[in-house]
Design a protein around this nucleic acid. Structure first.
Lengths: 215, 215
DNA sequence: GGGTTACTTTACCAAATGGTAAAAAAACTT
DNA sequence: AAGTTTTTTTACCATTTGGTAAAGTAACCC
């Protein structure tokens, strides 16, 4: 009965029949549980049993929907990549440069707050040297990064922004915003509150001062 | 022959006889190898076999020097905590506030460059919710953090620095500097060079603009 | 309602992994 | 050199973990 040599029985291309309601529901449950576990424990720290229990399914049942642990992880990373780059994609050449960048910062911070699991999943993957994501970074992130760097450099050249290195600017936006999700355990101890209280205001100030051109 | 209920046979307090040359050498080799492996794979991702091979010792031999995997990890974290907080400790009330903070930023960046393994070990631990470090954060980091926040706030109150939240200032210093070590895999892809080329200049500019008081 | 297909469970397994016991080999001590 | 202590190796072990086979159950289709 085993047909094809696809990684998963759901990756076949011949009959693109849409997944049943049960399939959709269970795959969603599994991916959600896996996000929980992978983001909290890292890839190797996560176990299929944990994922199964969190999802409320049995381990073999999970392996009915996914080819294996790694396939679940890769599926998550691929899904993540899209939403993760969204805020940057939205930053467009239209509109005021400073406003565009500041609202990008805000979107990124909101994202870290709303999707901390995703942020940690990503952080874990990069920390370990991006073993399952290297190609994706090269093919998706790099072009977008270069494009936006050029855009920002253009703004600078037109005197719309202070003269700073666009690449490091993006790095600092990413690091400062994601910090609140990735290092939450530390932030929580130090602020003794649930998170980034006045982070919004602080970061807006930071990047305003950094980016406002000296006239 | 087993005496005491200490976690390790090297934690006994009665005969504080100094460790032999062999002991010192092997413990150092083990800790160095463990730093390699833990920082690259995370706690659960690291295996004793990997550590043993990297250290050039057999697994049981490693367990002769340490009580177990966790003890090695904890030893590393404890050692790390000291050097890690050093740059912040050095920031003193004497000297120009802006200079003090900027050279703190520089020291932190140098540290991320010189000790990337340590940075990643720490990042891994915090990412997983600081399961073996929570108390340490509370007892060591928190007091230091509060002290330095007060110091910075004092500087601000005297008009020596712009009015910003000291807590978030420290967060942004940590995140921006450590980013180059923790997210090296990503930075490397995007810069297509071995690391933080002009990070020094960029971060100095960033924090100068942020901290210079409007007069 | 009978048959086919989709889904779930039960019972396993092989490899990996943290760890131990005890013998063997070095290293020190006198 | 003999005896004692320290260090290393060999041979295991119990558990965990990713994964599978096959039988059972529920859904769907006519």
């Amino acid at each position: 009965m085993t047909k094809k040599h696809a990684t998963s029985k759901f990756m076949e291309t011949d009959p693109p029949k849409k997944p049943s309601r049960i399939q959709q529901r269970n795959r969603r449950k599994i991916l959600d549980a896996a996000l929980d576990v992978f983001s909290a424990q890292g890839y190797r720290g996560a176990t299929l049993d944990q994922i199964a229990e969190t999802a409320g399914l049995s381990k073999p049942n999970i392996l009915y929907y996914f080819g294996g642990k790694e396939e679940i992880h890769i599926t998550l990373l691929n899904q993540l990549m899209e939403t993760w780059l969204d805020p940057l994609v939205e930053m467009s050449a239209d509109g005021d440069p400073l406003e565009e960048l500041l609202s990008y910062v805000q979107r990124k911070l909101d994202m870290a707050r709303d999707l901390p699991r995703e942020s940690r999943l990503f952080a874990n993957e990069i920390l370990q040297g991006a073993p399952r994501m290297g190609p994706h970074l090269e093919s998706h992130l790099k072009p977008l990064f270069d494009e936006k760097c050029t855009l920002i450099q253009g703004w600078i050249d037109h005197g719309k922004l202070a003269e700073i290195d666009p690449r490091h600017l993006l790095f600092s936006i990413w690091s400062t915003t994601q910090h609140y999700a990735d290092f939450e355990a530390q932030v929580h101890v130090l602020l003794a509150t649930t998170g980034a209280e006045h982070a919004d205001e602080y970061l807006q100030t930071l990047f305003t001062k950094l980016l406002t051109p000296a006239r």
